[in-house]
């Protein structure tokens, strides 16, 4: 069997693991916080989305590098 392809995509796959976990943790904490204190939802939402954007940035960098290199 002969497998050919771009090795970069494997690198992207690896780079997506960490952000995946990170995004999960961010939203788990957000859901926890809202469940404990529903009135703080508005405030928490902003923080949660900034944290989500920050950790997903790494996965997006991985995607860029998979195509760019």
């Amino acid at each position: 069997m002969n497998i050919s392809g771009n090795l970069n995509v494997i690198g992207y796959g690896l780079s997506a693991i960490g952000p995946g976990i990170g995004v999960g943790i961010v939203f788990a904490a957000f859901i926890n916080g809202v469940a404990r204190q529903p009135e703080a939802r508005g405030q928490l939402q902003g923080i949660a989305f900034i944290g989500f954007a920050l950790s997903e940035a790494l996965a997006i960098l991985g995607l860029v590098l998979a195509f760019a290199l």
Binding site: A53, L54, E56, A57, I60, L63, V64
Partner: peptide, 17 residues
Amino acid sequence: ISNILLRPVTLSLRLFG
């Protein structure tokens, strides 16, 4: 880096990706 440089990059590439 994350607030000034990366924000537009991630914003656009998240959507595109």
